[in-house]
Design a protein around this nucleic acid. Structure first.
Length: 569
RNA sequence: GCUCUCGUGGUGAAAUGGAUAUCACAACGGUCUUCGAAACCGUUAUUCCAGGUUCGAAUCCUGGCGAGGGCACCA
């Protein structure tokens, strides 16, 4: 419809002898103004040599001359906006079409035939999966689903730092704990394994900073991990890594993420190092102490970064170059999205500049998306001091709060546990996805996880309501066309969904979806409070069609956010 | 010091350069014998400061103030 209006307006301008470059058709901020609006009369007034309102008047005359059954009327408003109101028949037909589309409702085909890879979450084995990873996961998962909804073939990737000092610290910690007799039971659970690793890491990290001789021991272990020549170290490392990965996998399952590819730093480092060494003198330079550096162009706000350090080991930057190529060799993508924390922004710019010189075609396809930090009201989290909120801990805490809200006797114990988890995940993910990515979130349990108003559970609750209403209406006629009366805002909100999904996908901003869904849910709840649906009136089939469309839209929208949609809660 | 990002009611956020700046929380006042009150209705309250560009600026440009990130061998 939007495209059609654009063509009509262009023709009308042409008829008046005005050649248009860009034509903007938009949804008016206030729905009372109409279904669509254009500002062309304002934009081209000067070019046409008349005042905006006069031009708008002439354009309207032209537009009215063209036969269009979708349009009910055209009005001029304000400084010279042209507002379009769509016909009732068209609006009803659009709703009927939406219902027919079912699962496909809201999708578009703008990325059909494209291959997209999205990398996100990226936890480090041997360390906690904390709420920062939760943030990256929520955003990355939603972006994956959005580009999928645009028709792209989408693969999810997770990149994990399984080598480096943090690992050496944890391995040292485990060996020390074992020496002290603190050993896990044979049948320890995945969670107990993870907690043990956390303890080991904290021990190693503290000792590393406090004691120079231990620092040296850890450096030695780090080397041994790279070389894989020490059986004892290998053994501890291999089991520890396995524990970590099992633990992460359990969390992904809860969160609703299924990765297609796992990349490990231990695999990309050698390749990355080669790439860098082969381009010394061309792209990279020798820096102080034998390091290999990339000199970023300071006029572009870049700085110099080390790619291979003076000990000859590749840094994260070099590994990332290797990763980009490895990804492409695994899955020849048209677009590669990488989600990281925003503290990496400056580094990523340098990396992309270097990549543009080595793999220009890959750099062009790479899009970096950064998320803000989750901060505690008390300050920054630190895994060294143990002042961390783990994902697991947070989910459990929210879960218990959710259960307190359940009505007595609604669920069996098993169901209760399951639904509580779905709602908890919904609350957490929503609080992350509701704002534009890139900004920090001050994480306040009370505020960000409220179950009222602008929240995940609010949307889930509204969806559950539609489900129970539809269950009561089982067997009744549902028909979007059977309606006499004035078409309301709820109906019009519903029809905006595909445009919202398109924009969210294009900008890779899930928060457009959250904002929209809350508006939709609000419109529905208001409608629901004032209008009896199951009243046997002639309009009942239409009202049920509205409810079904709301239900379907909430379900699909929440799915795009990676938020579960229980039918009862 | 250099550099990047940000500054919207008491609080947290939204707004492809457009019309009366939107939403939630909090506060205050109402609505459950009727399709689920995790809901609904109402009241109060917002674009950091100073210039500029534009028919039109929360949005773009310049300067100031304030907050956060980054600035060579961590990731």
């Amino acid at each position: 419809m939007k495209e059609k209006l654009e063509i009509l307006v262009r023709e009308a301008l042409g008829a008046l002898g005005v050649e248009a470059t860009a034509i903007v058709i938009e949804r008016p901020a206030d729905m009372a103004h109409g279904d669509y609006a254009t500002n062309v009369a304002l934009a081209y007034a000067k070019k046409a040599g008349m005042s905006p309102r006069v031009l708008a008047g002439k354009l309207t005359e032209e537009l009215l001359r063209m036969p269009t059954e979708e349009i009910k009327n055209i009005e001029i408003a304000g400084p010279g906006f042209i507002n379009f109101r769509l016909s009732d028949a068209h609006l009803k037909g659009a709703l009927a079409l939406a219902l027919e589309q079912k699962e496909k409702w809201g999708s578009n085909g703008t990325l059909v035939g494209k291959k997209v890879i999205v990398e996100y979450t990226d936890p480090n084995p041997f360390k906690e999966f904390h709420i920062g990873h939760l943030m990256a996961n929520a955003i990355g998962e939603s972006i994956s689903r959005l580009v999928e909804a645009s028709g792209a073939e989408t693969k999810r990737a997770c990149y994990q730092g399984d080598v480096g000092m943090h690992v050496a610290k944890a391995v040292w910690g485990i060996m020390r704990l074992e020496k002290e007799g603190d050993i896990l039971a044979q049948n320890a659970s995945v969670l107990e394994h993870a907690a043990y690793l956390g303890k080991a890491y904290a021990k190693g990290a503290t000792a590393y900073e406090g004691d120079d001789s231990i620092k040296k021991e850890i450096v030695v272990i780090n080397k041994k991990i790279y070389e894989r020549g020490d059986l004892g170290v290998n053994n501890v490392y291999d089991t520890g890594k396995q524990w970590s990965l099992q633990y992460f996998e359990a969390i992904y399952q809860k969160l609703g993420t299924k990765f297609d590819y796992y990349f490990f730093e231990s695999e990309t480092r050698k390749f990355g190092e080669e790439i860098v060494r082969n381009s010394v003198g061309k792209v990279f330079e020798q820096g102080e102490g034998g390091a290999i550096v990339y000199k970023g162009d300071e006029t572009k706000g870049l700085h110099t970064r080390v790619f291979v350090n003076s000990e000859g080991l590749p840094t994260y930057e070099a590994k990332e170059l290797g990763l980009a190529k490895t990804k492409y060799d695994t899955y020849p993508y048209d677009m590669s999205v990488v989600v990281t924390a925003n503290e990496q922004n400056a580094y990523f710019k340098v990396l992309l500049a270097a990549m543009a010189e080595i793999f220009p075609e890959l750099a062009e396809k790479t899009i970096h998306i950064s998320h803000g930090m989750l901060r505690l009201p008390t300050g920054k989290m630190s895994s060294r001091t143990g002042d961390v909120i783990t994902a697991e801990g947070l989910i459990e805490e929210v879960k218990t709060r959710v259960q307190e809200k359940f009505k007595e006797g609604m669920f069996s114990p098993d169901e209760k546990e399951k639904v509580a988890e779905q709602v908890a995940i919904g609350a957490i993910k929503y609080s992350i996805l509701r704002q534009a990515s890139g900004k920090d979130i001050i994480f306040d349990m009370e505020q960000s996880l409220s179950f009222e108003g602008d929240s995940g559970p609010y949307l889930q609750y509204t969806h559950a309501r539609t489900c129970s209403l539809l269950a009561k209406a089982e067997g009744k006629t549902i028909d979007a066309m059977k309606f006499e009366g004035e078409i309301g805002t709820l109906h019009k909100y519903l029809l905006q969904f595909p445009e919202v999904v398109f924009r969210a996908s294009e900008e890779r901003e899930p928060h457009h979806v959250t904002t929209y869904l809350v508006e939709l849910a609000r419109a529905f709840n208001a409608y629901y409070a004032n209008t009896p649906v199951l009243d046997g009136s002639p309009n009942e089939p239409y009202k049920l069609a509205l409810v079904q469309a709301v239900s379907q839209t909430l379900k699909k929208g929440l799915e795009l956010l990676g938020i579960p949609t229980p039918e009862r809660m």
